[in-house]
Amino acid sequence: MTIAAGSFALTGAEAGEKPRAVLELFTSQGCSSCPPADALMNQLVEDRSLLALTFPVDYWDYLGWKDTFARPEYTQRQRGYAAGRHDRAVYTPQIVVNGREHVVGSNQAAIERTVASHERMDALPVDLDLDIKGDVVVARVGGSVAGVETKATLWLVTYDLRRSVPIARGENKGRTVVYSHVVRQVQAIGMWKGQSMTVELPRHELMPDRDVGMAIMLQPDRDSGLGPILGAAMLTGPSS
């Protein structure tokens, strides 16, 4: 599907289907430029062919308001991408597309162009699947693809579907900001070496209620920083 300029259309993609792109928004409650990007993320998550995640960072906490969702590891993740790209581009609001390119998180046109470009070059070549079978979450990774490195970590991401925060101090004082797909945790659940693999996890520990989503991402291990995402899949809310 191609995103029409000026809008993000809701698609009929089923949970667990291979997304067209992974979008990671690095944002902060203490950043006056971030609310437009946070509002755009509320639209992006409605496109079920995209895996869109919000990573709140902590480096603006000194401005008078401590971000209630931020974690140091999310700041480190953003810096890891900058190291992997060999640039110093660490800012908010920033969206990283498929772990490869960054754009200003409120620039809808730039996001659309980058997603379309990555879709044409098949930037997520490895097939991943995420499903629920009874009380078990089943994550599957396909075999190697020509031209793709074959040593990577399989990451499990859990996130809150929607959170609203009244901000009492700092640059956004007086605002109530709504955040979508706010990451709770990122944890390694397996190592991929180019062969098909399956990982089974307890469902109710990971998705305790209907306000929690889950995704998996495959990403290569590099000493120089974070590499590109090779594949991804997502679920939103537990099945009945």
Rank of each mutant, 00 (worst) to 15 (best):
1 M>S: 11
2 T>R: 15
3 I>K: 00
5 A>D: 10
6 G>Y: 09
7 S>R: 12
7 S>Y: 04
7 S>N: 06
8 F>P: 00
11 T>S: 13
13 A>K: 14
13 A>S: 11
15 A>I: 04
18 K>E: 01
21 A>I: 06
22 V>Q: 00
22 V>E: 00
27 T>N: 09
28 S>G: 08
30 G>K: 07
30 G>S: 15
32 S>M: 11
35 P>K: 06
37 A>G: 10
40 L>A: 01
47 D>W: 02
47 D>Q: 08
50 L>G: 08
52 A>H: 10
53 L>W: 05
54 T>R: 05
55 F>W: 13
55 F>D: 04
57 V>C: 08
57 V>G: 02
59 Y>M: 02
60 W>K: 03
60 W>H: 01
61 D>M: 05
61 D>P: 05
64 G>V: 14
67 D>V: 13
68 T>M: 05
70 A>S: 15
78 Q>E: 09
82 A>G: 09
84 G>W: 09
89 A>P: 00
92 T>S: 13
93 P>K: 08
95 I>M: 11
95 I>K: 00
95 I>D: 00
96 V>N: 02
98 N>P: 04
102 H>R: 01
105 G>M: 02
108 Q>I: 04
113 R>T: 13
114 T>C: 10
114 T>Q: 14
119 E>F: 11
119 E>Y: 07
120 R>D: 15
120 R>F: 10
121 M>Q: 14
123 A>L: 07
125 P>R: 07
126 V>M: 04
127 D>Y: 04
128 L>E: 00
128 L>W: 01
130 L>D: 11
133 K>P: 00
134 G>R: 11
135 D>P: 08
136 V>G: 02
136 V>S: 11
137 V>C: 12
146 A>T: 12
152 A>R: 03
157 V>L: 04
158 T>A: 09
162 R>H: 03
164 S>K: 13
166 P>Q: 06
169 R>A: 07
170 G>D: 12
171 E>N: 12
172 N>Q: 09
178 V>L: 07
180 S>T: 09
181 H>Q: 14
183 V>Y: 12
186 V>F: 03
187 Q>H: 10
188 A>S: 15
188 A>H: 02
189 I>N: 01
191 M>C: 03
200 E>K: 13
202 P>T: 05
208 P>R: 04
213 G>I: 04
213 G>K: 07
214 M>T: 05
216 I>W: 01
217 M>I: 14
218 L>R: 00
218 L>F: 06
218 L>T: 01
219 Q>L: 03
220 P>C: 09
220 P>Q: 04
229 I>P: 04
229 I>T: 05
230 L>T: 11
233 A>L: 08
239 S>M: 09
